[in-house]
Simulated assay, not measured.
Amino acid sequence: MLGILNVDKQFGDKVVLRDLSFEVRPGELFGFCGANGSGKTTTMRIILGLLRADRGEITWNGAPMDAETRQSIGYMPEERGLYPKMRPAEQLAYFAQLHGMPADEAKRSADYWIERLGVKHEPKDTLEKLSLGNQQKVQMAAALVHDPKILVLDEPFSGLDPVAVDALLDALTEKARAGAPVIFSSHQLDLVERLCDSVGIISGGRMVAAGPVDSLRAKESRKQLLLTVAGAQPGWARQLPHVVEASETGTSAVLTPTSPEVANEILQAALAIGAVERFVWKAPTLTEIFREAVAA
C-alpha cells in the first residue's frame, strides 16, 4: 500500500499542497487528475523524495518510505530526462543497472521494452534522432526497465498515437496485475476513465474527490435523466416539474432532477406531452465529475 498522509507543501508564500491524503493499493491503477498547477507533480516529487513535505509523510505498507523502497520506484517525469546523444538500448540498460539490475539482465530488459513498446529506430540511432513519440516511448521504457514495485507516471500518454497508447495501457495493466500500485496523472480523462480502478481529483492543492469511478458516479447530485418524447415542441423539457437543469436537443433532453425520488413525477408529466420513447438514468463521465469537483 502506497500512502500519502496529510501532506502540506509551501514554496515561499505559495501554498501548493494542503493536507493531501490518499492511498494506492497493490494492483490498483490510480488516476491523479487536476488542472495545471494543482499540485500533481509536486506530490509525485514528494513520493520520490525529490522534495520534502513541510508536514505529513509518505508510507509503503504502513511504514515511512525509505531510500531502498524508493530505489524500486519506476518514475516517468512529464519533462523528458534522457540523454539525447546515447542510443536508447544503452541508456535503458544503464538506468536498469543504476537500480541494481545485473548488466546482462539489464540489457535483456532494455531490448524487451524497446520491442514491447514499439520504439521505431535504427540500430545506430541516438535518442535525439527519434521522433517525439518514440522518445516518449523510451522515456516510458526507462520507468519499466528495472521491474519496479511501484509506478509513478506524470502525463505518460502525452504525444503518443493511439497504437502506442494501447501498448502502454497493456503494459501498465500487466504491472498492476502483478501487484504494483500504479499512479499516473493525465489530462486525457477518457483514458483515465477507461483504465483506472480509482481516481483522485486535486484542486488548489486539496483532494476534492477520490474513490472508485463507479462510486463517484453514484452520488445522487450527479444523477441525470435521458428523456425522449415523440413530437415534443421546443421548450418542452423546461416545462417539466422538479428539473434543475435541462439540455434540450429536439425531442430529446438531458435533465438534472432535484432528487432521484421525483423521477416518476417527471415521467408522468412527459407522458402528458407525448409518447415517451426513452427514459433512462445517465451515468456522468469522468470529465463531468471533474468539472463539478473543481468548481465546488
Rank of each mutant, 00 (worst) to 15 (best):
L225Q: 10
L227Y: 04
T228I: 02
V229N: 09
A230H: 07
A230N: 01
G231S: 14
A232M: 11
Q233M: 06
P234H: 02
W236A: 01
W236S: 12
A237L: 04
R238K: 15
Q239V: 06
Q239Y: 12
Q239H: 09
L240W: 01
H242N: 15
H242G: 13
H242L: 13
H242W: 15
V243E: 01
V243W: 00
V244D: 12
E245W: 02
E245A: 09
A246T: 06
S247L: 15
T249Q: 14
T249D: 09
G250A: 09
A253Q: 04
L255P: 00
L255R: 02
P257C: 06
T258R: 14
S259P: 14
P260H: 00
E261F: 08
E261D: 15
V262Q: 10
V262S: 06
A263P: 01
E265M: 05
E265P: 05
I266E: 00
I266L: 01
I266P: 00
Q268I: 06
A269P: 03
A269R: 00
A270D: 04
L271Q: 11
L271M: 14
L271G: 12
A272L: 14
I273H: 04
I273K: 06
G274C: 12
G274P: 03
G274V: 08
V276E: 05
V276Q: 00
E277W: 08
E277P: 09
E277K: 15
